[in-house]
């Protein structure tokens, strides 16, 4: 894979070149430290402190109590379900997002603005509404529900419903991240590749994709974090069957309401770590391509 894709030289446009500070643009030291201090304090209070609380509560009763949480079959099932939902929805949305951003960014066609609006739809509706839409479609009182349930197919209050709403709420992330980059790049490089005799597939892998790799990575990270963390929409279609349709966020709420604080925060810490995995993966890719 690493040999097949030669990452392009184009710099991502979200990383502006650094300009060395000159005396003329420099603020007095006091102002500089005040601004830096404010930013650091803000980060500490709003990002670091909550994370620290999650981990300290999880480890309150020691490492044994922490790891005991993950021996509970209901907790394991919640972790598996969350990984499954993210594992299905992220690749699907990557495939869809690349296709959609490519079509919108490179071509002019009728109904283009309608397509963009549709892609944005999951961003603009509340997750609870997104969940209810699926209840109205696949519920027993809904459009397709009676027929499906009569034929033994369960969508909502079962795993397929959770996967479907996860795909729905994470739909725009990849496409939305890719679109500005693809549009900014224009068609020149692809046209050059085609003129030099590359076929469509080769052009896509060697020119289009390498140019948008950073945007794609950000899209995947955001998509994955949301897929794992989604609460509202999943809560509506889950049915809260323990050990079966509880995802990690739902299970955390359940444990918390059960006065089981160490397990609740232990699962929360794992959820935070899982979301960080993609962040670490991104850093590794970044580091390897630079060296």
């Amino acid at each position: 894979m690493a040999e097949a894709i030669t990452w392009g030289e184009a710099r991502p446009n979200r990383q502006p070149a650094t300009v060395p500070r000159t005396g003329a643009t420099s603020e007095p030291a006091g102002v500089r430290w005040l601004l830096i201090g404010t930013a650091a304090a803000f980060l500490a209070v709003f990002l670091f402190l909550p994370l620290a609380v999650v981990f300290s509560t999880a480890l309150e009763k020691g490492a044994f109590a922490y790891f005991k949480t993950f021996a509970d079959p209901d907790t394991l099932s919640a972790i598996r379900l969350t990984l499954l939902a993210a594992g299905i929805s992220v690749p699907l949305n990557v495939a869809f997002g690349i296709a959609a951003a490519w079509v919108i960014g490179k071509f002019e066609f009728f109904g283009k603005s309608l397509l963009i609006t549709l892609i944005d739809l999951p961003f603009s509706v509340s997750p609870v509404v997104a969940g209810l839409v699926f209840v109205l479609l696949f519920g027993l009182q809904g459009l397709f529900g009676p027929w499906l349930i009569a034929h033994g197919v369960r969508i909502i209050f079962a795993i397929p419903g959770i996967v479907l709403v996860t795909i729905f709420v994470t739909f725009p992330f990849v496409a939305r991240e890719l679109l500005p980059t693809i549009q900014a790049q224009g068609n020149d490089e692809e046209e050059a590749a085609l003129t030099l005799g590359a076929n469509g597939w080769k052009t896509f892998w060697r020119v289009t994709l390498p140019n948008v790799k950073w945007a794609l990575l950000y899209g995947v990270i955001l998509c994955n974090a949301r897929a794992m963390g989604e609460f509202g929409a999943v809560s509506v279609v889950s049915g809260h069957i323990r050990g079966l349709t509880d995802t990690m966020p739902l299970h955390i709420e359940f444990l918390y309401n059960d006065y089981q604080f160490v397990p609740a925060f232990a699962v929360a810490s794992l959820l935070a770590l899982l979301a960080l995995v993609t962040l670490v993966a991104k850093s590794i890719v970044e580091w390897r391509t630079q060296s």
Partner: peptide, 19 residues
């Protein structure tokens, strides 16, 4: 298998097809 939530919400879910 066990499911717990607000009573009205649970009735609604059963009406909507929770088995």
């Amino acid at each position: 298998q066990q499911s717990n939530a607000g009573s009205g919400k649970q009735a609604r879910a059963v009406i909507d097809g929770l088995q």
